[in-house]
Design a protein around this nucleic acid. Structure first.
Lengths: 201, 201, 201, 201
DNA sequence: CATGAATGAGAATTCATTCAT
DNA sequence: TATGAATGAATTCTCATTCAT
């Protein structure tokens, strides 16, 4: 009976873990770090605060996992695109389009990606995530330079600029997107155009 | 004698005010909003917490002023450049160069500009500041399009992308600048190049 | 086992809540609003300050509840007396006697009833409470006038005067009660006499 | 020249002292103790905070003096009335009328008289003041009993009740006066009637 | 495993009082 | 005498974390 219960418990635990992550993501997406005190996460997930600490060593760890999970999936998509057998400019266009469309669909990710989560541990993870994104774009740009699609350039700088460019165009306050979300296609096209030009394509 | 004392008082007051602003700026630059509780600011400035509230109605106001002060000067320089009688691409290059050089000299500004200060009041000011920067670049890009220096494009999107690009290249975690600050000229040149290409110049 | 724990928890919670209320009441009775900062209440109740905020949204709410609780029971007694099938003068006599006796037994209530709690939210409640007391006496006096036990008069003014009269006689600084609590019966009789005469009975 | 300046200074000082007292009274009347921090008093009086401490040992002393001054004048009027060669009931009527009319004209006194000033030192003075008022009414009532105008009674209790009655009718929350200030004469008459009846006249 | 009451270290803010000028 | 900048203790409230059940 012990292992049987243990199995049930594990299942229940897994369910709780998932619910906690989802609740955290929802609260952060809705109102940022400040909107997600542990008690609120517990309430949203329908668990006790104590249970959160059974699944995560600290609040920072919980946030790190939420951020990582949010980024990981996108990253895999990007890496798929980056690895495709297509000209670099086309891959760049596709990667940016994918990111922008996904971000416009669910603002949570973009927010988490840009926002300063205040807690140093989480901030470190955010930096790591942005770097991962930068790496993908760096690979594409470097490829493009190697194959002659893009002119010679400091590919690190270009990759950083591209990540900054579409991020700001999406979530930044300078962004035109918020006001005119209506014409999403045009926005995506414009951002792609700018980023492609930035890489020299 | 009255005016002499008055002058002295003013001087001391100004001194304290200035010290508070400098302390805040230093702490924020070093570790963001969370690194600058009122007590820490007071300690850093060498004053009491109460004195901070004699000079600033609230902590948010203090932060807003720090941010505004940090941005205002740059903005004036930019506006001067934007208004110069030069081809748009050249103005764009100059504006970006000015920003990047200044940011590299004092990393505090760039940080303050990018960081999410959590407090809604301060966040509002940050948004305003980014918009102001965006406006300057929008003007240049729009000019360039009008005079044929740049191709037709969504100038709002381009402006946002440019601001995002050089900001990320400077302070973003994808940024190459942190590791290789040594070759500042090359970095500045690279960022300019990318941004000019982004505008289509 | 679940319900057992639940019961225990509730009991403990109720205990803490009760202890907080009692501590607040004791401190306010001893020295007024100023004598009851949250830290002092916590210390007196033997709990942490944080726990107070788990049970009460704010300090003002805590004070309001203390005041309300202190008044509510008396009020129910009064309303019972006011509704009795007796001549108005007799009901008036009984109501005053009940209040005075209870107040002499525990001076806390009278204090809370009279004291200006400085905080607007609490002050509003105090006003409401006095009005409720006034309403009871108004009803009795109006009844008396209707049935001819009392002469025609401005019953609102009379009710206010009666509440003010026995309050002052009890807790007011003009009060003789403090010095000569010994002869409680005589004091009660005197106050009743004065108030009955005031109503014209 | 020394004494000449000294004279000037004294005069100026006296002026300042008066202005401080007036400013305090105005602020307290407008919004109570909480509305009169030392800095606000200084601003209202047009002096520095430091000067306040040259004239008054502490804030509590300042408040005590304001309260005392506010009460003293009324008290002298009452004592005049109490000493008049008239029947006790008439003197009682006159004293109450005088108080009520003055209080209705300027709500500041009544407020100061009833309010709990929170600070123990000031509270002590408030108690003393109420006692002084009580004494006046006690003298009148005792006279009335001695001369047969009023029946035998506990004159101390009656005096306290009368002070409480007209105070509550004036400033208390049960009070009808606030809503229907229009008919001042009727209110004054009603209060007098009730209080006279209370004394048995 | 699960609960949630309890903790207590901080955070922002206020204000009576002092003291160098 | 007069100033008002400066102090810092006190106050209300928050929230990550723990632990007895």
């Amino acid at each position: 009976m012990a292992y049987k219960r243990s199995a049930l418990m594990e299942e229940r635990l897994a369910g709780a873990r998932e619910r906690i992550l989802l609740a955290t993501r929802a609260l952060v997406a809705a109102g940022g770090y400040r909107n997600a005190p542990v008690t609120a996460v517990a309430a949203e997930a329908g668990v006790s605060t104590g249970l959160i600490y059974r699944h995560f060593p600290s609040k920072a760890d919980l946030f790190v996992e939420v951020l990582t999970a949010a980024v990981e999936h996108e990253l895999r998509i990007f890496e798929g695109i980056a690895a495709e057998d297509l000209p670099a400019p086309e891959r760049l266009r596709r990667a940016i389009t994918a990111f922008v469309r996904r971000a416009l669909a669910g603002p949570g990710l973009a927010y988490a990606f840009i926002a300063e989560p205040v807690d140093p541990e989480v901030e470190a993870e955010r930096i790591r995530c942005r770097r991962l994104f930068g790496d993908v774009f760096h690979r594409i740009v470097a490829d493009g330079v190697a194959t002659g699609s893009f002119p010679a350039q400091d590919t690190r700088v270009t990759a950083a600029c591209i990540v900054g460019a579409f991020t700001e165009a999406l979530v930044g306050p300078t962004a035109p997107s918020r006001d005119a979300v209506g014409d999403e296609d045009a926005l995506v096209a414009s951002i792609c155009q700018v980023c492609l030009r930035a890489a020299g394509g």
